[in-house]
């Protein structure tokens, strides 16, 4: 009974064969999925990044403003559109309740995307490919990205950031 004390010596009671097999299988499977994670980190193409730096919100904002000034090619809904050269460092700033700038990227080119927030925590969810990373105040998160499909993408904030959270939607254009 599970509500009475087990018999003394219960610890030496051998396992049933079926239970032994089950535990062995489960253990082997646990080892397999444990190994699969680092293996896929090496073999796969989509990983979370290990490159990040501490940065103050003001500093990050200055860099983003410079980036916009240098690469601005237009404006949409009051938000600047930038067309940075392929291979360059690009920046995305999250703040209550907007993402800026709008990034105009070239398909199959690689960029170093710097992601941060200058106020509270935000989440960058790229729609419709459903890729999600955190935009953390105080941290510059560097993601090396290569857009492989062209089109209009949305950046949806997926970390609750205040009452207008659901309206914090930005845009990425890939041509």
């Amino acid at each position: 009974m599970s509500v009475t004390a087990p018999q003394p010596g219960f610890f030496d009671q051998p396992l049933h064969k079926e239970e032994k097999i089950w535990i062995a299988l489960a253990f082997v499977w646990c080892i397999f999925i444990t190994v699969a994670m680092p293996w896929w980190h090496i073999a796969g193409n989509q990983n979370s990044s290990s490159e990040f730096y501490k940065i103050s919100g003001e500093h990050f904002s200055t860099i983003v403003d410079d980036f916009i000034a240098k690469n601005k090619t237009g404006e949409e809904a009051g938000i600047p559109v930038v067309s940075p050269p392929p291979g360059s460092d690009i920046f995305l700033r999250g703040q209550q309740w907007a993402w800026d700038p709008i990034l105009d990227l070239k398909v199959n080119e690689t960029y170093r995307l710097h992601l941060s927030s200058i106020d509270v925590l935000h989440g960058m969810s790229i729609h419709p490919i459903n890729m999600n990373f955190e935009a953390v105040p105080g941290w510059d998160y560097v993601l090396t990205i290569t857009p492989t499909t062209s089109g209009d993408f949305r950046i949806i904030c997926n970390e609750f950031c205040g009452v207008d959270h659901h309206n914090m939607i930005g845009k990425i254009i890939v041509k």
């Binding site: 949409e76 809904a77 009051g78 938000i79 989440g123 969810s125 729609h127 419709p128 490919i129 459903n130 999600n132 949305r154 949806i156 904030c157 997926n158 970390e159 609750f160 959270h165 659901h166 309206n167 914090m168 939607i169 930005g170 845009k171």
Partner: peptide, 20 residues
């Protein structure tokens, strides 16, 4: 699986500049 956010009152962003 389609990327609909948790903790979001309106997934379609009808009041935002860019609808989804």
């Amino acid at each position: 699986g389609f990327g609909v956010s948790r903790r979001s009152w309106d997934m379609n962003g009808v009041e935002s500049a860019f609808a989804v």
